[in-house]
Structures are given as structure tokens and as C-alpha cells.
């Protein structure tokens, strides 16, 4: 890495590498999230996504977004910019979200951040 252009090219390459129909699930995995039970939630998401064969869905970890009281939480980023924040999750609720939100395309209102705050 020697020039600015090289860095920008790398950035563009990273963006281009993302499939346009990719759905990202970002799970809060900072100390606050993990201590509230984020690890089993993340595992449940991964298992369920694999089991249902949802190849477009990527489950990833991220840091603390600041609302530690609502952990464990995760956010679903969809093509077109829709962002949904699910809070106070359990492995069971996470599976429900995969089935309802990602397969049947229904937001589960009662689990979203708007229903809590």
C-alpha cells in the first residue's frame, strides 16, 4: 500500500465484492452484548440461516451501539437501505425473526426497538 489511489481502489473493490442482494445481520458483540447473552443469539442466527439455506444472509459481529440496556440486539441491513433493529433478543426470538422477517418478510413489530423505547 503506497498511494492514496491504491487505498481508494481497495475500498471500491471491497464494496464491489458485496453482492447487491446481500442481507447483513450485525449482532452486538461488545462486553455489554456478550454479558447479556449475545453469543447464543449469534449462534442461533448462524445455525438457523444455514439450516434454512439463506445464502444471501451474512451474520456478523459488531461493537456496542450505545443502548446497552436493550442487549442482546442485532440489526438487519437489507438492500435498498432498510435497517431494522431487534432488541432484547433470545436464541428463540432470533429464530422467530429469521423465519418471519427473512423468510416471510414480515417485521416482528413487538421485538423492534420502537416497541421498547
Amino acid at each position: 500500500m503506497k498511494t492514496f489511489e491504491e487505498l481508494i481502489a481497495l475500498k471500491e473493490e471491497i464494496i464491489a465484492g458485496e453482492a447487491p442482494d446481500e442481507i447483513k445481520i450485525m449482532v452486538g458483540m461488545a462486553t455489554c452484548g456478550i454479558s447479556a447473552g449475545a453469543k447464543p443469539v449469534m449462534q442461533a442466527l448462524k445455525d438457523c440461516v444455514e439450516e434454512k439455506g439463506l445464502s444471501k444472509v451474512k451474520v456478523k459481529q459488531t461493537g456496542c451501539i450505545g443502548v446497552c440496556r436493550l442487549e442482546p440486539m442485532f440489526e438487519i441491513f437489507e438492500p435498498g437501505g432498510r435497517r431494522t433493529t431487534y432488541v432484547d433478543m433470545t436464541p428463540e426470538k432470533a429464530v422467530e425473526v429469521v423465519e418471519e422477517h427473512l423468510i416471510k418478510h414480515h417485521i416482528i413489530e413487538r421485538y423492534t426497538i420502537g416497541a421498547y423505547d
Partner: peptide, 22 residues
């Protein structure tokens, strides 16, 4: 409201140091 970005208490904040967190 479905997204954290729509919450009033997030809109009032300005995230620079925390911009990538989460």
C-alpha cells in the same frame, strides 16, 4: 419505529468517536 436511527434520542446525538461502533 423499526430502526435505531429513527429514535429521537439517537437523532439528537452526533457520532464521531463512535461512528463505526455497532
Amino acid at each position: 419505529k423499526h430502526s435505531i436511527l429513527e429514535m429521537d434520542y439517537i437523532e439528537r446525538q452526533e457520532r464521531i468517536a463512535l461512528k463505526n461502533c455497532g
